[in-house]
Simulated scan of single mutants.
Amino acid sequence: MRHAEEVTFGGSGLDRAAELRGDIPAMAALMQAPETRTLALWRGKLLISDDAACRLPLDHPVLAEARGTPLFLGREESGAAIFAHDLSGWEPGDGQAEPGGFTDTSEQHHPACAEDEVFVELRALLTRLAPRDAELAATARGLFSWHATHGFCARCGAESDVTQAGWQRVCRSCGASHFPRTDPVVIMLITRGNSCLLGRSHGWPEGMYSCLAGFVEPGETLEAAVRREVHEESGVRVGPVRYLASQPWPFPASLMIGCHGLAESDEIEIDPVEIETARWVSREELVTAFAGEHPGLHPARRGSIAHFLLRNWLADRLD
């Protein structure tokens, strides 16, 4: 698919400079360089100003709240290093609590930051961030989420230490190395003639539908995963399958692998444990839904790969 990397969190050409991660003197020099900058995240939220990620100098006072090891994300085009700090230990004042729910629209302001600098949920920024900011933020959030849940060795249970500038953990006891986890998930644009198959999960906002999706199992190809997941969730059988595009999805650690499958049946029989409902939607209905004029159908949120796949299908741009 020629437009694959236009998807949110798609490749922005970031130089991840992996060769520097294990070079302790080089990392120390970068941490001292005046041009080095860092992103600040609080409980997965990104510090932004005017819809751009704040790039803070390493002596910024808000970083006194940081906990754990800063992550090395890479180098900008200028050659300046970019890191990420986790400020999740900070407790905001009254009126700044997270409301929860499907989408967190709250914003938090730290007193050490400028008035226009606030922490915002990354999913609310999907269509607002520039590609480079989006890739940096997704990388940082995914890494911090992994560290938060992998502090102990999966082999022996002993505590592990952060190494490789945040890209590895090593067990103190048995020496086992552990690397950031990414879970492969197929997400499917399933079509049959002039219609596509959409479903909705339990707890989604009223009327919201999206492409079916599911985790790839061990020993399974992407094509087989597409056919299995669609049949398990909807009862629809799928024939030819092809890859279209992928999207890092750091909520907490998935790689969404977008595929196009051609349905060989159209009768729907859902698994009520997996999804709430599924339906065939015509191109005409989907156009109306994208325009916000359909009374009972709202497509996947903008910035998601599902929205990207559906919009490109409507525009005949799946080549």
Rank of each mutant, 00 (worst) to 15 (best):
residue 3 H to N: 05
residue 4 A to L: 13
residue 5 E to S: 08
residue 7 V to G: 00
residue 11 G to K: 13
residue 12 S to G: 12
residue 18 A to Q: 13
residue 20 L to G: 00
residue 22 G to N: 14
residue 32 Q to P: 06
residue 32 Q to M: 11
residue 35 E to R: 14
residue 36 T to D: 00
residue 46 L to E: 06
residue 52 A to W: 03
residue 52 A to S: 10
residue 59 D to R: 15
residue 59 D to H: 13
residue 64 A to S: 14
residue 66 A to C: 06
residue 67 R to H: 05
residue 69 T to V: 02
residue 78 S to T: 15
residue 81 A to W: 01
residue 85 H to P: 02
residue 85 H to E: 11
residue 93 G to Y: 12
residue 96 Q to E: 04
residue 98 E to V: 09
residue 98 E to A: 11
residue 99 P to Y: 12
residue 106 S to R: 10
residue 108 Q to H: 04
residue 110 H to V: 03
residue 112 A to M: 09
residue 113 C to H: 05
residue 114 A to S: 15
residue 116 D to E: 11
residue 119 F to V: 11
residue 119 F to Y: 12
residue 122 L to E: 01
residue 124 A to D: 05
residue 133 D to L: 08
residue 139 T to V: 09
residue 148 A to L: 05
residue 149 T to M: 11
residue 155 R to Y: 07
residue 159 E to M: 11
residue 162 V to C: 08
residue 163 T to V: 09
residue 165 A to E: 01
residue 168 Q to S: 06
residue 172 R to Y: 06
residue 173 S to V: 02
residue 177 S to D: 06
residue 179 F to G: 05
residue 184 P to S: 07
residue 185 V to Y: 12
residue 196 C to V: 08
residue 200 R to S: 03
residue 204 W to H: 14
residue 205 P to D: 03
residue 206 E to A: 12
residue 207 G to P: 07
residue 212 L to P: 00
residue 213 A to P: 00
residue 218 P to F: 12
residue 220 E to S: 10
residue 222 L to V: 08
residue 225 A to F: 07
residue 226 V to F: 09
residue 230 V to L: 09
residue 231 H to R: 15
residue 232 E to N: 07
residue 232 E to F: 05
residue 233 E to C: 12
residue 238 V to P: 01
residue 238 V to A: 05
residue 240 P to G: 04
residue 245 A to C: 13
residue 245 A to K: 01
residue 248 P to F: 15
residue 249 W to R: 00
residue 250 P to T: 07
residue 252 P to V: 05
residue 253 A to D: 14
residue 253 A to C: 10
residue 255 L to E: 06
residue 264 E to P: 09
residue 264 E to C: 09
residue 272 P to N: 13
residue 272 P to S: 12
residue 276 E to I: 13
residue 281 V to P: 00
residue 282 S to I: 13
residue 285 E to D: 14
residue 294 H to I: 06
residue 297 L to E: 06
residue 298 H to N: 13
residue 302 R to W: 03
residue 306 A to P: 11
residue 307 H to N: 12
residue 309 L to D: 04
residue 312 N to T: 11
residue 312 N to F: 03
residue 318 L to D: 00
